[in-house]
Simulated assay, not measured.
Amino acid sequence: MQTPSLGRVVLVLVNPVTNGGADVAPATVVRVGSEHDDGTWTVNVKADLDASTTAKWLTSVRLFADEETARTWDGPAAYWPPRAR
């Protein structure tokens, strides 16, 4: 998995009610925490929402390599966006 760093963009799972009906929003990594034994990381992010509240700060978000794995996590989760082709 990629190593997170400040300023990197990830996709974060959010409540669709706060994001114009979508359950995923882009987010910027604002703090990198620790790496876990399974290769995931803990990060803090600033999510850019598609709603009247334009940003939301999320802390202690688990960062996964892909969306499928992130959706199995029981807590705040983010994942790397797929590579553009």
Rank of each mutant, 00 (worst) to 15 (best):
V32L: 04
V10G: 03
V17H: 14
V30E: 10
W41C: 01
A70G: 05
L49V: 12
G33A: 03
K56F: 01
E68G: 12
T18V: 15
T54K: 15
A47L: 11
V32P: 04
V9L: 14
L49C: 06
T40S: 14
D50R: 10
V45Y: 03
G33N: 02
T53G: 08
V43D: 00
D48N: 14
K46A: 14
V45G: 03
W57F: 09
R31I: 07
L11F: 12
T42K: 06
V43P: 00
V24E: 12
P26V: 05
S52P: 02
L11K: 06
E68D: 13
T42R: 11
A25E: 03
V32H: 01
V12W: 03
H36I: 02
T40Y: 04
D48V: 13
S60H: 15
L49F: 09
V45W: 00
V32W: 02
T18G: 12
S52D: 15
D37V: 06
T28V: 15
V30N: 00
V10Q: 05
V24W: 01
V61T: 03
N44L: 05
D66H: 14
A65Y: 12
V14G: 00
T54C: 06
E68T: 14
T69W: 02
S34P: 00
L58R: 10
N44F: 08
G39W: 05
L58W: 14
N44V: 04
E35G: 11
V14R: 02
T40N: 10
D38Y: 09
T28A: 11
V29N: 04
A27L: 11
N19D: 12
G33T: 10
E68A: 14
T40V: 05
A65F: 15
V17A: 12
N19E: 05
G20P: 04
V32G: 04
S34F: 13
V17Q: 15
D23F: 07
D37K: 07
V17S: 10
D38C: 04
D48A: 15
